[in-house]
C-alpha cells in the first residue's frame, strides 16, 4: 500500500471531507498561502479558496468562539490552533461554551467542531509550545478527545471527528508529523472509542498514547530480544475510552505499564490506572500498576533536559524489566 506521512494523512482527511461536505471548513492562523507552521495546510487554500480556508487574525478566543457560533448554526468548522498550548487563550469557548451548550439548552442544538492542534515536546520549543494538556479536556463532560499515533489512525480518526456532532479535541503530535505509514487513498473512518492493539504479547500490557505508542513499540522490539513478550494497547481516543480492550489485555498479561507524555501527576494515565484497578482485571494483576509520565516541570529548552522530562524508550524498557522482577508467584 501507498505510504504517506502523518501530516499528509491529516491534510488528506480534511481535504476529502471538504470535497464532499460544503459545511466543513477550516479556520486558523497562517493556514492560507503560508500553509501553517508545519506546512500541514499547504495547497488547501488553492483548492478551496479563502472562504473555506479562513486565515484568521491571531485571536484564539474569537477563532474558537466563532467556531461555536457557526457550528450551532449548521456549519462543521475545523479549527487549527498552531500549538496546543494556545488552547489556554481559547479555554472559555471550549470548556464553558462548546462543551455545555447542548446540555444547558436542554438537549437542543449541537456544536460539531474539531479543534486540531499539535502537542508534545521533542523539538526544542520549550515551555510554552511543548505541553501535553489533553487530560484537562477529558475532565469536561461534553467534549471528546482524540490522540492518533499513526498516519493510518490520524486519517480515519479525523474523518470520524469531523463527522461527529460534538466538539472534539484532536491532538496531533509534532514529532509524529514526519512519521510514514500505510494509508489507503480512499476515505475511511475509525470510530471514536475503539482502542487498537498495536502489537500482541503475553507478558506485559503497555497502554500508551500518542508518541508513546511509537516508543512502546520500539521498546517492545528490544524486550522481545530479551525474551519478554509485550502487548501494546493504544486507546486512540481518551474519551470515549475503550475500557474493554484495556481490561481484556491486562487480564491476559497480568502486568500493566501506562505510558504517557503529559506530566505524570493528574495526567490521563492516572485515569487508565484507576479504571484497571476498579475493574475485574484487578484480580489478574501479578504486580502493581506502573505509570510512566512526564516529570513535574515545564518542558525545558536544552535538548538533554527536554528528553529527560518525558518517558523515552529506555525508560519503558527499564519499567518492563522492573515489573517482571516484582513477580510474586
Amino acid at each position: 500500500m501507498r505510504e504517506i506521512t502523518y501530516l499528509e494523512a491529516v491534510r488528506e482527511a480534511m481535504v476529502q471531507e471538504m470535497r464532499v461536505n460544503n459545511d466543513v471548513f477550516l479556520m486558523g492562523e497562517d493556514i492560507g498561502i503560508y500553509g501553517g507552521p508545519f506546512g500541514l495546510t499547504k495547497g488547501m487554500i488553492e483548492e478551496f479558496g479563502p472562504e473555506r480556508v479562513r486565515n484568521t487574525p491571531i485571536s484564539e478566543s474569537a477563532l474558537t468562539g466563532s467556531a461555536v457560533g457557526a457550528a450551532l448554526m449548521g456549519m462543521r468548522p475545523i479549527v487549527e490552533l498552531q500549538f496546543s498550548d494556545f488552547i489556554t487563550v481559547a479555554m472559555d469557548n471550549i470548556v464553558n461554551q462548546a462543551a455545555k451548550i447542548r446540555y444547558m439548552f436542554g438537549g437542543k442544538g449541537k456544536v460539531p467542531i474539531v479543534v486540531r492542534t499539535p502537542s508534545g515536546s521533542g523539538v526544542g520549543f520549550a515551555a510554552q509550545h511543548s505541553q501535553s494538556l489533553e487530560a484537562w479536556f477529558t475532565h469536561v463532560p461534553g467534549l471528546k478527545v482524540v490522540q492518533p499515533s499513526t498516519p493510518y489512525d490520524a486519517k480515519g480518526l479525523l474523518r470520524a471527528a469531523i463527522e461527529d456532532d460534538n466538539p472534539v479535541l484532536f491532538y496531533e503530535h509534532k514529532l509524529l508529523y514526519g512519521l510514514k505509514g500505510e494509508v489507503p487513498e480512499e476515505s475511511y473512518s475509525i470510530p471514536l472509542g475503539k482502542a487498537d492493539v498495536k502489537r500482541e504479547g503475553s507478558d506485559i500490557t503497555i497502554v500508551a498514547t500518542s508518541i508513546m505508542v511509537q516508543r512502546a513499540l520500539e521498546a517492545a522490539k528490544l524486550l522481545e530480544a530479551q525474551g519478554i513478550s509485550v502487548e501494546v494497547v493504544d486507546p486512540r481516543t481518551l474519551f470515549p475510552l475503550d475500557e474493554e480492550t484495556i481490561v481484556n489485555s491486562v487480564k491476559k498479561t497480568g502486568r500493566v505499564i501506562v505510558v504517557y507524555e503529559a506530566v505524570k501527576r493528574g495526567g490521563f494515565g492516572a485515569e487508565i490506572a484507576s479504571l484497571i484497578a476498579e475493574s475485574e482485571a484487578f484480580d489478574y494483576l501479578d504486580a502493581p500498576i506502573i505509570r510512566l509520565g512526564g516529570a513535574a516541570v515545564p518542558i525545558p529548552y536544552n535538548t538533554i533536559l527536554e528528553q529527560k522530562a518525558v518517558p523515552q524508550i529506555d525508560d519503558i524498557v527499564k519499567a518492563a524489566q522492573s515489573i517482571l522482577n516484582k513477580v510474586t508467584v
Binding site: A62, S66, V68, G69
Partner: peptide, 8 residues
C-alpha cells in the same frame, strides 16, 4: 465571538 460565528 459566538454571535460572530453565527453571522459567519
Amino acid at each position: 465571538p459566538i454571535a460572530t460565528g453565527a453571522a459567519l
